[in-house]
Every structure is written in structure tokens, then in C-alpha cells.
């Protein structure tokens, strides 16, 4: 592979970009596809912050992340942030955290509240979008907007992840051509049944895993060794 600027040897590459190095060596089909896909993450809470970390470790190359919120102490029970990040925008903290895992990602950040008006423009380049909101009417709004106002992106959405235990009730289901749904569809977050790192994490990793599967099986942008393969 051509050496990236400033990288003189494989050894340097290993130090600077271990995710790229190991994914490329060990799972080239996954790495090449995920590196070239554009993946949107709408919301960077319990779901989104975990989806982002999983995608960074998989070698994702292009992310579009959107969230209007800041990191709060209570988020640390389940979201991928750290004490010293409390008070900072989640988009900023996410960029920082992903860069510490895999600096080889092009991340476009949007610190905004997503609306039917701005979603099509913010996620225009996305091949697939992870719906990672908390409130049901916001989930509805995002899914409806993507399915009615956008032609292309697939959406992996979540409903029913609150509480703990009952791991196997969380399923990934293909609802229609462009809509994939993760969750048990039932368990509502409310006082007494709050969100836990363990269960919301399962859902987030279902989402990330569904995204990998869609990118490999359905988007398939790069033929290894073909004209669009910039990796050989």
C-alpha cells in the first residue's frame, strides 16, 4: 500500500494507525468496504456513542455525526465519555475519543438539533444512518424523514432497549427495503426502568453489526483490486 504522508515504514504505520493495520491484514473484505462507506450517526447518547466507537474499531473511514447536546455526569453510566469531558459538546468529545482509537477517520460533525428540514442535507452523502435518539417522537421523525425525503440511505433504528437482562429479546429485524429495526419493541425507559450500559450497549452493537452487514452485502462499493480500490 502507498505510504501515507509522514509514514516511512510498516512499523510507523502500526504505531500510528493500528486499527487500519490489523483490520487490513486480518479482515480485508470488511475493512475495505467499511472504510469506503459513509455512515451517519444521529444522536450521540447511549446508542450513538457506542455505535461510533464500534465503527471506529472496525476501521470506518467516513462518519457524519450529529448531536446538539453536551456531556453530563449522568451520561457516564452508559455513554462512551469520560469525567474530564463533562460539559463539552458530545460531537467534540466523540471526535476526540474516536481519534484516540483510530485517527484514520474523516468525521463531519454537526452540533444541531436534527429536523425534517436539515436531515436530508446533513446526511446527503450517507449510505446508511444509525438512528440513535432517545425520545420516540424524535425516532419517528428521523425514520419518516429518511424514508420519505431521501432516496438512498438505509436506516438502522432502535425501539425497546431499556432496563437490564433479557438480552435475547433484543433482535435485529428487516422491516422493509431501507428500514432495519433493533430492539425488543416493548421495554420503555421510564422511572424504575432506566437505561443501563449493559442493555443499551447490546442494542448499539446490534446496530453497528447490522451496519457492517449492510455495507458488505448491499452497498458493496469497492471491488478488491478493482478500479475504485485505492488500497492496493
Amino acid at each position: 500500500m502507498p505510504a501515507k504522508e509522514g509514514i516511512k515504514s510498516e512499523c510507523d504505520a502500526l504505531v500510528l494507525m493500528p486499527v487500519r493495520f490489523f483490520m487490513e491484514q486480518n479482515m480485508p473484505p470488511v475493512f475495505y468496504e467499511i472504510k469506503n462507506a459513509v455512515i451517519g450517526i444521529a444522536g450521540l447518547g447511549g446508542l450513538g456513542s457506542n455505535v461510533a466507537v464500534a465503527l471506529a474499531r472496525l476501521g470506518a473511514g467516513k462518519l457524519i455525526i450529529a448531536d446538539f447536546d453536551i456531556v453530563e455526569e449522568g451520561n457516564l453510566t452508559r455513554q462512551q465519555y469520560f469525567l474530564d469531558q463533562v460539559g463539552r459538546p458530545k460531537v467534540t468529545a466523540t471526535v476526540e475519543n474516536l481519534g484516540r482509537i483510530n485517527p484514520d477517520i474523516d468525521i463531519k460533525t454537526h452540533r444541531v438539533r436534527l429536523t425534517p428540514e436539515n436531515i436530508p442535507q446533513i446526511f446527503a452523502e450517507a449510505d446508511v444512518i444509525a438512528e440513535c435518539f432517545d425520545l420516540p417522537d424524535q425516532k419517528q421523525m428521523l425514520v419518516e424523514t429518511v424514508l420519505t425525503r431521501m432516496q438512498r440511505p438505509l436506516i438502522v433504528s432502535v425501539s425497546g432497549v431499556a432496563g437490564y437482562g433479557n438480552s435475547n429479546a433484543i433482535k435485529t429485524t428487516r422491516i422493509s427495503k431501507r428500514l432495519i429495526l433493533v430492539g425488543d419493541g416493548i421495554t420503555v425507559a421510564r422511572p424504575g426502568t432506566r437505561l443501563t450500559a449493559s442493555r443499551v450497549g447490546i442494542a448499539a452493537y446490534h446496530q453497528a453489526n447490522a451496519i457492517v452487514e449492510l455495507v458488505i452485502n448491499e452497498l458493496h462499493k469497492v471491488e478488491i483490486g478493482g478500479p475504485n480500490d485505492t488500497n492496493t
Partner: peptide, 10 residues
């Protein structure tokens, strides 16, 4: 008819 119901949590 396919109905997807969203509940709070995420």
C-alpha cells in the same frame, strides 16, 4: 400494513 412503534430509550 406494517406498523413500527417507537418507545423511549436510547
Amino acid at each position: 400494513i406494517e406498523l413500527v412503534r417507537f418507545v423511549p430509550g436510547g
